[in-house]
Design a binder for these strands. Sequence first.
DNA 1: ACCTGAACACCGTTCAAGT
DNA 2: ACCTGAACACCGTTCAAGT
Lengths: 187, 187
Amino acid sequence: MALTRQKIVDTALEILRSYGLADLSMRRLARDLGVQPGALYWHVKNKQELLVVLAERILEPVKVGDAGGDPDGAVRRSAQDLRAALLAVRDGSDVVSLAQALAPESLTPLSGLAALLTESGLSELHAHWGAKSLTHYILGAVAEEQTRAELARSGLLEPGPDSDTDGEEFLFGVNTLLAGLEVHRTR
Amino acid sequence: MALTRQKIVDTALEILRSYGLADLSMRRLARDLGVQPGALYWHVKNKQELLVVLAERILEPVKVGDAGGDPDGAVRRSAQDLRAALLAVRDGSDVVSLAQALAPESLTPLSGLAALLTESGLSELHAHWGAKSLTHYILGAVAEEQTRAELARSGLLEPGPDSDTDGEEFLFGVNTLLAGLEVHRTR
DNA sequence: ACCTGAACACCGTTCAAGT
DNA sequence: ACCTGAACACCGTTCAAGT
């Protein structure tokens, strides 16, 4: 059956979900699709482009909803949605971090967060910086969670207290940043 | 001349400084040392261990000095020292992020920051969480700076306004986190 | 237009065998 | 104790040639 960009991305996402980023090679992907490695390059420029598309797919469920009178609340919810979306795919935060490094524009959530922060009374500049700070924090925090998960999976780490203090810690960081931004509010 | 762990690490750091993480392979390292790849594995367990040692070397110049009556100021200085140390080595933030993922304990600055924050009147838990938030922010922010530098180097990005707004933006993030932590202070 | 076959230039790691 | 030689099992990417 005809190879399509869609099928390539879908299969790549499957490999990611089931085996993680380390197993997502172009050759492995081709094998799973029953095709020669070179065939992929007709539909996809290179592996980097593929990773950017995967990152977009991972973030798709997240809509940085509009404020509705409570911009801080909207930021909190968006941050938690982002965390959930990243955690839903193995190595999700690594893929998104890579993609953001490769194609800084293409990932939407950043501009959404900036808009919310502007709405909360920050200048354009501070809103932009604040959104970037939040993004760095979110990606770093979730990356650490997922790294622990990978280590636990490979038996190199005792499973640890599986309770959701991670969620609490994550929210602490988000709230800390929001509280710190408070200071710069005009309104 | 006898191959030693020291020489391996030194040469690795040289490759990193001059050509970046992408060019730091065990085979390339062996070639530069005039030795067979397998020889490295007598002195070093594997590439991961080497990266952890490199991260320690990169962070060596940073001493998270004690407070001296002004813990917030000490945190600010430490953060800026960290940034400088990371920027001093090509792909420094990537190496340190990797190392922190591989050997979460081994990197010292985190516990230093936590100590400073405890001294500033935060509970152990909040100090710990605050230090982690700071670390995630710092690594993310500097990683972005360095990625831009790499892209510019390869000509995929116009050099941009080379002025040091990066430093300003970085400090904004650090100050925001510190201001946000203010709320939880006991003293 | 789309894919195969085959190559190019690499990887990290292991391990018998040499000195 | 320390290193070589050689292998194993991989990579990403390109490109003439086929259909």
